[in-house]
Structure formats: C-alpha cells, structure tokens
Amino acid sequence: MRPVDDYFYNQKEPYQSIMLYVRSVILNTLPEVEERFSYKLPFYNCHKKPMIYLNVLKGTNYVDVAFVQGILLEKQFPILKNDNNRKQVRSVQLKTLEDLDHDNFVALLHEASNVLGKSKKAWFI
C-alpha cells in the first residue's frame, strides 16, 4: 500500500471518511492533479506545484483542507479561513461531511487550479 493510502486508513473516524470523500472530489474534479505524500501529509499538486494538502491539526476537531495559495482565493470564497495566522495558506475546515458544500468546493478547486497555473511560484510570500 502507498504511504498516502496508509495515512488515510490510519485516521480515526469521522476524519477518515471526510478525507477520503475530499480526496475523491479532488481527484474526480481535477484529472490533471497529482497525489503525493510529502511532509507526512497527502498533497495534491497541480501544474507541478503544491495546491492542496489535508491534515488534522493537533488540538482541533476538524479536517483542515489547506489551499497553498489560499490568500489569493479568500475574497472570492469566504469559506476559506486563516487558521493559526498563516501567511499564505487558507483552509476549509470540516467537522462533518455535511459541512462541505460540494458545488462551491468544486468551483474553489477549479479556481485554485487556474490561479496556480498562472503563478510563477508555488509559495510567493
């Protein structure tokens, strides 16, 4: 089994179900995305740059769907939050599957891919 698969299957519920669902939405929405395991986390690269990673931060009770260039998307998509005062990363925080607005998330994925495709760097701040 691949390390990224191990990561998902070693998560406790409800995090495992949420992450597996988000993973399937990402992979089905953006066929060009590449799933990788970096920094002990599942990363989704688009245009050869990191776009999203999934995590459960210590001391929290939600799945953090983190967009690397989220700062460029937060005005258009207010569901993106700045947790822990991160400079560039913004995230969607999911406590349950019902917290995810599928259509809005798909639109967010498409826009994130477009923004990343136009960007010269993955991390710019």
Rank of each mutant, 00 (worst) to 15 (best):
M1K: 15
R2I: 09
R2M: 14
Y7A: 06
N10H: 14
N10S: 15
Q11W: 03
K12T: 11
K12P: 12
K12R: 14
E13Y: 03
E13H: 01
P14E: 06
Q16V: 06
Y21L: 13
Y21M: 14
Y21Q: 13
V22I: 07
V22R: 03
R23Q: 01
S24K: 15
V25Q: 01
I26W: 07
T29H: 00
T29Q: 04
T29R: 05
P31Q: 08
V33G: 00
E34I: 03
E34K: 14
R36S: 10
S38I: 15
S38F: 12
Y39T: 02
Y39F: 15
Y39N: 00
K40D: 14
K40T: 15
L41A: 10
L41G: 11
F43L: 08
C46A: 12
H47R: 04
H47M: 02
K49C: 04
P50A: 05
P50I: 01
P50K: 01
M51L: 08
M51E: 03
I52R: 12
Y53S: 08
Y53D: 09
L54E: 04
L54V: 08
L54N: 03
N55D: 13
L57Y: 11
L57V: 10
L57P: 13
L57N: 02
G59C: 02
G59N: 00
T60P: 05
T60D: 01
V63D: 09
V65H: 06
V68D: 08
V68N: 04
V68R: 05
Q69W: 06
Q69V: 04
G70D: 06
I71H: 15
L73E: 07
L73T: 05
E74R: 00
K75G: 12
K75D: 13
Q76A: 10
F77I: 07
P78K: 00
I79Q: 08
I79Y: 11
K81R: 11
K81M: 05
K81I: 05
N82G: 07
N82S: 11
N84L: 13
R86G: 07
K87R: 15
K87T: 06
Q88I: 00
Q88A: 03
V89I: 09
V89S: 04
R90P: 02
V92A: 02
V92S: 09
V92H: 06
K95A: 11
K95V: 12
L97W: 10
E98D: 13
L100W: 05
L100A: 06
L100C: 00
D103Y: 14
D103T: 11
D103A: 08
N104H: 14
N104I: 15
V106N: 02
V106L: 06
L108H: 00
L109G: 02
H110A: 15
E111T: 09
E111V: 06
E111N: 12
E111G: 10
E111K: 13
A112H: 05
V115H: 00
L116R: 01
L116S: 08
G117E: 09
K118C: 04
K118W: 10
K118T: 01
K121F: 03
K121Q: 10
K121H: 12
A122D: 02
W123C: 09
F124S: 08
F124D: 11
